[in-house]
Design a protein around this nucleic acid. Structure first.
Lengths: 193, 193, 193, 193
DNA sequence: GATGAATGAGTGTTCATTCAT
DNA sequence: CATGAATGAACACTCATTCAT
């Protein structure tokens, strides 16, 4: 039955994220994940070919969701600053709302497993953002410094904030999110004359 | 009786970093580390009480070295921008030169093991930097937005750059490092009027 | 799915008794027991939660069997001497016939593992015997000296005989078993006047 | 220096008894014993050739002390009942006073290590007791039933009492010790006519 | 005589995975 | 499709013992 299948798969997904976050890749065994998802270990092998597949697929689902949420409402015809603000705030909200997914995402990227997947920011979803940034750089609206540098200043602080937030309890207000984006913009915008 | 052999301890340290980077915490077993360090598994337990201790101590050594290198030459009496430039470039050079240490550092911080250690940026070494930033914020030289936000814009891009560099091969020139720091400064400096 | 195999459990039980008797608790490792039982070490952990559980459960099975056999045919309405004779001879036959079980039993009781289990002689099975003895003491058929003392004179010699028998090869005849019980009775019966 | 040596050996002896009683032969490792005795593991190998030697020698010391204490004041020319009373009460006092030594003694005898030592009750110390008993049997003062049976009724209850005493807290008074010996005597003495 | 460093072999236990049901 | 039993291989860790000092 379809419903059943999908429910089981979701349970496995959730249990994987939960357990990897709690005990790390090292100790998140198939047996424990299965127990947490309320299925048999053998059942996991119906949905995934092996443990690597489970972990990488779980990452892929998160990465795709992240891109989708971040790019929602992205409009190429808007001014670059407004496009960026949209994406930045979307991203920020995503990482705030889904701390567990972000934690898994980061733990995965910082592990050797990351070799198993493509660079997630090179997926189609982000290509239009990249194009917009590069054309804004050409038009000298933002600094002409190479995409890597620009990207580092957009997503670097975002991530740093998300992680410091995870550790202590300081909440970001809507106001301070705006401030943070303005700082991002100050970093990358062309110097005023 | 035989004396403890500092060379052995260093071999274990090196092997730990190497193996964790290569195969991750999950698969970096004591047996493999011992083999890579050319000692018996049992020998590791002379120097460290258990695996956690080995991993956390290895992290602590790296973290301390990082702070020391970053803060070298830090001078409280200089203007904040110059102090920051010093620290920022020190840090950048450290992470460039010691990619393996950084990789271990990040992998550790993004794993559940990180609960075992104090926040490394709250060590004494960094306190003077924090003080300098907070007083600059008070004097309205930099934006009065809270230390977390400032920190996120100083170290977030740094880390993002270091990691993108690790993955592809684009090298940063001395010039582009300067550019990157200026972007950092643009992000945090007080708006001009 | 496969079903649990009662034969496997019995093989593990037998191998545990055999090995503990042969090499002692100290050297009876899971690996050796598994090999003797012709199963994988991991299989043992399907049936028992850990080594303690294996050893204690094995003891419990033996202890229960011992009580059951000893008390078989015990009749509260018979004269106390006849009841006792029945129990005593049952017990003697049990320890004679199952020297290996007794040896395991004694080794367990004389090890620190014994803290893990309740006093086996306080089980329900023996309660009726205790009651019969105490009422006989009250009626002055046997000496009014406290249950511990009576028990020591019933089971102490029994055990001592079983153990000396284990070591050398002297066999007890039916006749000498009777004699031994009469000595037990002489020890505890009320002094004649 | 002599004093030193003897002190170290005694410390090792004490630590061995203590640890074996607390954690059993299985877990009483040389390293732990060494730590408890405040010496280096290597030091133990100066006094004993290996672990077996340590355990067996420790047993031998206890066994010899037990015989010596039990036989103190034994007089072959006294009536057998008085000789026996002496030995019995000596033994009882010994096991009461040195519960730890008895526990080690029993644990050792019930383990496969016991194969390493001679039957302790066949030592010279006990020979005169055995002779006295056998001649009393010949004279029909006690039952003519074989030494094993007699011995089982003398020492079996003694041991059973000592062990029940170890477990609960019931103390034996001087009076009840006398009673117990009289029960022993009732068991073995010739039937009156 | 006495030590702590050092280790190969072993410990109890868990692993990812397979298989019969 | 789904399961729990089953396992060889690996795990972290401890062992009895040796050796250089």
């Amino acid at each position: 039955m379809r419903m059943q299948d999908e429910k089981k798969k979701e349970a496995i997904f959730g249990a994987t994220v939960k357990l990897v976050n709690e005990v790390g890749f090292a100790s998140a065994s198939i047996a424990k994940i299965a127990k947490a998802a309320n299925v048999s270990p053998a059942t996991i092998y119906i949905y995934y070919s092996d443990k690597q597949d489970l972990l990488a697929s779980t990452f892929a689902v998160i990465a795709e969701k992240k891109v989708q949420v971040s790019m929602k409402g992205f409009d190429e015809s808007s001014p670059i600053k407004e496009s960026l603000r949209k994406v930045w705030i979307n991203s920020f909200k995503f990482v705030s709302k889904h701390e567990d997914l972000l934690q898994y995402h980061e733990q995965f990227l910082n592990s050797p497993y990351s070799d198993l997947v493509d660079d997630p920011q090179s997926t189609n979803g982000f290509q239009s953002l990249r194009a917009a940034i590069e054309s804004a750089a050409a038009e000298q609206i933002i600094k002409p410094v190479g995409f890597d540098l620009i990207r580092a200043f957009i997503f670097g602080p975002l991530l740093a904030l998300a992680q410091s937030k995870t550790r202590d309890n300081s909440r970001m207000t809507r106001r301070s999110i705006e401030t943070a984006f303005e700082m991002t913009w100050d970093a990358i915008k062309r110097d005023q004359d």
